[in-house]
Design a protein around this nucleic acid. Sequence first.
DNA 1: CTTTTATTGTAACCTTTGTTACATGGTGAT
DNA 2: ATCACCATGTAACAAAGGTTACAATAAAAG
Lengths: 225, 225
Amino acid sequence: MEAVSKILELSPMFMGLNELSIDNLLRGIHHQVKHYKRGDIVAFSGDECKSLQIVVEGNVKGEMMDMAGHVLKIEDIGVPRPLAVAFLFGQNNRYPVTITANVDTTILVIPRQSVIKLIQTSEVFLTNFMNAVSNRAQFITKKLKFHSFQSLRGKLADYLLCEAADKNGIINLTKTQEELAELFGVARPSLSRTLRELHNEGLIKADGKRIVIINKVGLKECIEK
Amino acid sequence: MEAVSKILELSPMFMGLNELSIDNLLRGIHHQVKHYKRGDIVAFSGDECKSLQIVVEGNVKGEMMDMAGHVLKIEDIGVPRPLAVAFLFGQNNRYPVTITANVDTTILVIPRQSVIKLIQTSEVFLTNFMNAVSNRAQFITKKLKFHSFQSLRGKLADYLLCEAADKNGIINLTKTQEELAELFGVARPSLSRTLRELHNEGLIKADGKRIVIINKVGLKECIEK
DNA sequence: CTTTTATTGTAACCTTTGTTACATGGTGAT
DNA sequence: ATCACCATGTAACAAAGGTTACAATAAAAG
């Protein structure tokens, strides 16, 4: 716990403030620290969002899901990033995603009222907060575009090219196909099939987790810009 | 022009302030008024977003599009709503959509620097701005969910049920099928087909622009919650 | 009241992705 | 080594939606 403000120094919420100032700020407001075990649900989609939460240890994932069990993974959030920044104010203060701890995780919880106090007290925090909310909107907008216009082939090409950037075309997948499929919002066999197609067409060489990009230009052409 | 602050009184950006205070605020900052003719492009997707814009007359639409000419309409924005609130700060200050004037339109333009000044000067404006950015993020999140999980059938059912709410099941479509298709991000004949299917299945009675909901419960079951 | 243009209906066919099911292969625990 | 458990590969088939093309209407313009 003693190291929390040290960690927060690097957080989008507190960047630009030094450890001491952060300590002082935190001392003036209500806040608590919560611990979660791997697999614990931090927040359910639809829950009311009453506090700003900052991951100070471990990491969590946020995913949307429907009744039929379809999952769309939005992102992983690790140290020292905030959760649900864009759902603390405005008119719909409910988590749009379910937040699950990927590993044992510690989260700093700052209630809305205290966030307001922080905003009023620290101009730096205000600026950070505003930027963070804007960044969220921009991030989600990018997702919307990605999922609305990109075919599975395009999504995969885009992903592979990103992963391979400055690693001269060699990728070692860290995610399972199941995870990737959720990230793209598709069924796992579909992903597997498309991967195979890219392979058969000679654009990539896929062998388990190891993927080598053979034809970068061709792969780029798969992305519908 | 004399009426601008009167209009702004009702804007999400200035609500809670009276005409006089708004006048005073505006007098202290740089701003301009721009006029657009019906069909004019107010901003291209990808343009840098350097100013807050508020529609004071007419209305505009925002839509995403890809190279292949596919269009996803995001929304119409009319008096006295702001444009691009979430893209003024944060790291990616570029319009994610192309903004087009639906009719002759007048827009109040407030450069970023002046917005910062407004935020610093008026606590009400600050609160409004923060809420507006949050609302944007929430709105886009809802869209993402809608497009990711809902089949065309579901989108249509959802739309019809919303349109018919408190009009006891009778809808007079104001949009053309072309427009609806863009709103749902699908091809026009697909929309037409699905409409016909719902009709044939006895869930609705569709005759041109006039649609009557026959089986509300059945229609609700089309929505994948 | 025509003529023109925009909107709607619809069919045939194609492509993408989902669904289900099962085989294969790796990996860690006992 | 053996078992249990994932992750992966893959095939057959189904479903959703896109594409193209054209006919039938409706609406606006003259």
